[in-house]
Simulated assay, not measured.
Amino acid sequence: MSRVKFWGRTVRLPRNRPLRVAMGFAFVAMGLVGFLPVVGFWMIPVGLAILSVDSPLARRFRRRAEVWVLRRYNRWKRRNVGSV
């Protein structure tokens, strides 16, 4: 069973590679029409996380984005610790 670890949470994915790739592209495509109800822009990072299991390009992009977000969060957290 394939797994994706995304911000400390582990999600199991199907073993079938074509199904994983189709799911990843479907999430990204539905995320691009995120202004519609139910689907949203949150689906783009989820789709990239699913694609990162099989695609080195998506894996690199996901890792860079995760590092960027965590650095910004830690910087914000350090600034706001003294203000409480």
Results as ranks from 00 to 15, higher is better:
Met1Arg: 12
Ser2Ile: 01
Ser2Asn: 15
Arg3Pro: 00
Val4Lys: 02
Lys5Gln: 15
Trp7Asn: 04
Gly8His: 07
Gly8Met: 14
Thr10Phe: 02
Thr10Asp: 11
Leu13His: 08
Leu13Gly: 03
Leu13Val: 09
Leu13Ile: 04
Arg15Cys: 10
Arg15Pro: 13
Arg15Tyr: 04
Asn16Leu: 11
Pro18Trp: 09
Pro18Lys: 07
Leu19His: 07
Arg20Glu: 03
Arg20His: 08
Ala22Asp: 11
Ala22Val: 05
Ala22Arg: 12
Met23His: 03
Phe25Val: 14
Ala29Asp: 14
Leu32Gly: 04
Gly34Asn: 09
Phe35Lys: 14
Leu36Arg: 14
Leu36Asn: 06
Pro37Asp: 13
Pro37Ile: 11
Val38Glu: 08
Phe41Ser: 10
Ile44Glu: 03
Ile44Tyr: 02
Gly47Asp: 06
Gly47Ala: 07
Gly47Trp: 06
Ile50Gly: 01
Ile50Ser: 02
Leu51Tyr: 04
Leu51Val: 06
Ser52Glu: 04
Val53Trp: 05
Val53Thr: 13
Asp54Leu: 08
Ser55Trp: 11
Pro56Met: 08
Leu57Glu: 13
Leu57Phe: 15
Leu57Gln: 09
Ala58Tyr: 00
Ala58Ser: 06
Ala58Asn: 01
Ala58Lys: 01
Arg60Pro: 00
Arg60Phe: 09
Phe61Gln: 03
Arg63Tyr: 01
Glu66Trp: 01
Leu70Thr: 00
Leu70Gln: 09
Arg71Met: 06
Asn74Phe: 11
Arg75Cys: 00
Arg75Thr: 04
Trp76Phe: 15
Trp76Ile: 01
Lys77Tyr: 14
Arg79Glu: 15
Val81Pro: 00
Val84Pro: 04
Val84Lys: 12
